[in-house]
Design a protein around this nucleic acid. Structure first.
Lengths: 357, 357
DNA sequence: CTGAAAGCGCTTACAG
DNA sequence: CTGAAAGCGCTTACAG
């Protein structure tokens, strides 16, 4: 509004003291008396003074700002992660800047650029589906900005990694399906170059092997993370001569695609087809049947990722840092889409399911 | 990693030229030859130089950064708005910093503080449900940072405002319900100090008046924006001696609360109760019955809000600026939850609805 | 308890 | 086409 910006010099002048002293008063320096602090702050408010972090950061060399890059803010998994990160930032008086990559490698690069230019102290990143090249991550590592991967990580990039027990979670899901008497369990996966999806697949394979199920090679579809790709994959699976009676996915969006497809094809879920997702998105309990899934403890995942910076990195000697993977335990959430037995017993009892199985 | 940060002075020294010239080369100044630009950029990359926006901004006085504050990133309405803002920012080579208020006044204040300190050029804000005091907004107005309200606005704060045709949208909804032969149409609203909700209510009242419906005073519930508040409001409404046969809400979350309550009470939707929401959240077409709602054209709303800054403010003479409200037209989305007639006719034809109406 | 001075890294009139 | 110099607004050793 008014032309010139108010600085500590203006306050100093009005109050007949030095700018350095004003700066100390404003920053609650212990050697400045309460009385003076009050006086200075009052005058600052009066003049509509506002602190300029950029100048302070430039001088101090640290911005007390953390950056986070996620594929999509619209998914509740990510917004929960963000909530966890926000908590940790607030506790440590850090600001948070968030960017989304929209699962695009190009936009991810741009986001990194924005954060680097904003001089954040640390970047938390959950990689875009597309990301295979790692030079943008290596470039950050070559700067004095810390970078921490979470959820979707590339193994060979040597950073702290905060991830779920993905393999165990997928294994637990397969065991659950086996217990529910599903026998022909297929898999729709994500891009294998991301450790996360590789591990989920490994868990699936382990479960299949453990149960000694005989799975045709074409029951395993890789790299179908988008809703449309998952839909196409499911169409293929369900039109096989011997279609699967259950489908394990690596994300709730995929599971939703399968569920909607099944509905449109008149396939009864869970009776004819069991479906399980991953992430415990908020929509999973709104759809019918409700979707069985994995609760990734997203808020906790976010907290831990941020705390790697606040605790492991800020408080430890840089020289002794080593690559380290932090594992956040997940929980299986069993709902209707995979509980064949429950439906069958209730059908016998009450007959409230009218579709034939 | 390495101790000292690389600056343009380091590049200048290595190349035997001045820092100013390096700066110009890096910024594609027209008076620098392509050859030299290339040389400088190559050396910059080689030295892992990274531009320091903070220093540049400090010098330049503008950060080319926009800030946005929304209540929750987890709602698809807001993430779509953000997408629209991102588009406009990208087109104008601006960075975007987003913050969420979690509908809390305190957190909204903090968010403003963060953005002011980051020296953003402009703040776009959708107010928290709680926000009644406006001094934090006035404080921004007293600085050289522009502030633009969108979606949820306080009328008396003199800024550009970008909003939907909220009154018309609510009116259209009531007309639709009337056409569907609903007669006892109740209303669950939001906080009236926010213009948005005031307008939606006005539209509802207009529709009721227009249809000459006789509505008891207790059919109108105000200030019940959270899911739980809406649920409580619906419980009261539905346990009246003469309960409503339709409920108009001002948000999809409220509508979802009503829908879930109806389901648990065994009330058939839309046959016994019509329900309409607002915002066209992504879950509205996942629930059963699907929810009728208002498509707020959220992406366009975001674009327009950002463009008020890029077009109206940046390109016009500041002195001639006036308070102005930009209206984004919404669209009614009719789905199952309010279409009694369709259900009834299909029931007659095929008898596929088993619940009694 | 208080101040003078330097410097963070950049851009940009000014001068040549 | 190129450089020297000032200054954006702050913090912080250093000195008293």
């Amino acid at each position: 509004m008014n032309g010139k910006r108010i600085t500590i010099y203006d306050i100093a002048e009005e109050l007949g003291m030095s700018a350095s002293y004003v700066s100390r008063a404003l920053n609650d320096h212990p050697l400045v008396s309460e009385k003076i602090k009050e006086k200075v702050k009052k005058k600052a408010a009066e003049l509509h003074y506002r602190h300029n972090s950029q100048a302070a950061n430039l001088r101090r060399g640290s911005s007390k700002t953390m950056g986070v890059i996620i594929p999509h803010i619209a998914q509740s998994f990510f917004s929960e992660v963000i909530a966890g990160i926000e908590e940790a930032c607030t506790e440590n008086q850090y600001s948070l800047i968030m960017c989304q990559s929209h699962d695009s490698y190009q936009q991810e690069r741009k986001a990194i650029d924005v954060l680097v230019r904003q001089n954040v102290d640390c970047i938390l990143i959950c990689l875009a589906e597309e990301t295979q090249s790692t030079q943008h991550l290596e470039a950050v590592k070559n700067s004095d900005i810390e970078i921490i991967q979470f959820d979707r990580c590339i193994d060979k990039v040597d950073t702290y990694k905060v991830m779920n027990d993905n393999s165990e979670a997928a294994l637990a899901m397969v065991r659950h399906l086996v217990a529910e008497k599903y026998k022909r369990i297929a898999f729709i996966g994500g891009p294998e170059h991301l450790l996360t999806f590789k591990n989920r697949k490994a868990g699936y394979i382990k479960g299949i092997t453990e149960a000694a199920l005989n799975i045709p090679f074409n029951y395993i579809v890789e790299n179908a993370l988008t809703k449309e790709a998952a839909r196409q994959a499911a169409i293929k699976l369900l039109s096989l001569k011997h279609p699967p009676d259950a489908i394990v996915t690596v994300s709730d969006v995929q599971a939703l695609a399968v569920l909607q497809l099944a509905e449109s094809m008149g396939i009864a879920v869970p009776q004819q087809l069991g479906i399980v997702g991953f992430a415990n998105e908020s929509f999973t309990e709104l759809v019918r049947p409700t979707l069985s899934t994995i609760d990734q403890q997203s808020r906790e995942l976010g907290r831990q990722a941020a705390n790697v910076y606040f605790k492991n990195i800020l408080k430890e000697d840089v020289k002794f840092r080593k690559d380290k993977t932090i594992v956040v335990k997940s929980k299986i959430v069993m709902r209707q889409s995979s509980q064949k037995k429950m439906v069958e017993s209730s059908k016998t009892k009450a007959g409230q399911f009218s579709q034939k199985a």
